[in-house]
Design a protein around this nucleic acid. Structure first.
Lengths: 205, 205
DNA sequence: GTCTATAGACGGATAGAC
DNA sequence: GTCTATCCGTCTATAGAC
């Protein structure tokens, strides 16, 4: 089953919009990328803005799926935190690296993040999507994990909100760095490891 | 001495570009903001792109001035770190807050950051400017301060590069957050204080 | 659902009067 | 150094044939 032209248009539009922004990309360019003529686009979408809206809808539905799978019965951090009952540094590093790699290399996530980075100041809805998906939601997740680890006596007691921020914000900054300059990924990953190892020394029992 | 039309054009262009991006802003809009007709713009700049370049030049020269004043004889972190010889939490919080407030409220810095945030993916030069001015340069400065504080025995010895990242990345993330949603500034400042207080407990002697 | 042709608006930029 | 008038290209979008 080959993918529909409509899906194809969404994919190519996302690629183009995420690199140069909505305004800099013309309907003709999208059509060229898809391999059709510009007016044919309008058989699938009523306007260029409509394509953008479809991208956002796709993003929202993927985000909803993802958070649903993360918190099956309320919290899955319990599952994740369970992994750490017996173990130390390496698994914390793994948690950070997998978060980093997902955000950086998942094609859709990565392109949507760039798109929202570029378009965030155009309206508050876009800004909120960016903030929720790439800051508040990971912070909240990380915080729940630390709350559990503290309860189990595996981490020193402290302010879990601040701990989550101190754990996650370097990941966030290195992501922004790698989005701007992909050549720095190796360097970023190495710093990420050192950060988490150090974080562990500071906070784990 | 009233400011020249040329400077006025640069200022209004920066304001518009930083909100909606280069491509979404027309020369007519810039002219309207300045209070002249669109063709008059071309007596001061040979193209719209030329206005953008002038903004970047202004940014670079301000950045050069700023870093020159920071490291008068090589390092001013010595001066800054000098402030911390006798004192503790409050002054660290002050250092973080002043960094945060400068970045967030200095009108030019704030607009340039938004502009580079929006335009960074269009070419590598813009991406590098963003990375250097808002990540690498503050990290380097902070690292020098921590190296000095460690040498003086005021902080526990450790990896100053990672310490700088752990100190600064929450500031960076909260800046990105406030750029996207200015209503969260109070909340951000409060978290910043808790972060620095906590950071101090972890790292200071 | 694709195409060609084209409408209609708007973009950046220039010419030339004052 | 500002204006009016205007050129010309490109843009989004529609009409209508196949």
């Amino acid at each position: 089953m080959k993918k529909s032209t409509k899906v194809h248009i969404i994919e190519e539009s996302l690629s183009l919009f995420s690199q140069r922004g909505f305004d800099a990309v013309s309907v003709k360019e999208i059509a060229d990328a898809v391999g059709i003529k510009a007016p044919s686009i309008y058989k699938h979408f009523k306007s260029k803005q409509d394509i953008f809206n479809a991208i956002l809808e796709e993003s929202n539905s993927r985000y909803a799926l993802q958070t649903a799978s993360l918190s099956l019965d309320g919290l899955n951090p319990q599952m994740d935190a369970g992994l750490f009952e017996t173990i130390t540094d390496d698994h914390m590093v793994e948690m950070g690296e997998s978060l980093f790699n997902h955000f950086l290399h998942d094609e859709f996530t990565s392109k949507i993040r760039k798109l929202l980075t570029i378009e965030q100041f155009k309206n508050q809805e876009l800004a909120n999507l960016y903030v929720i998906q790439y800051m508040e939601s990971p912070l909240q997740y990380q915080r729940m994990i630390f709350e559990l680890l503290i309860k189990k006596g595996l981490m020193r007691s402290g302010d879990p909100e601040i701990m989550a921020m101190q754990f996650f914000s370097p990941i966030f900054m290195l992501l922004v760095l790698c989005d701007a300059n992909p050549h720095k990924e190796t360097e970023a990953l190495e710093k990420l490891k050192r950060h988490i190892t150090q974080f562990n020394k500071l906070y784990r029992n």
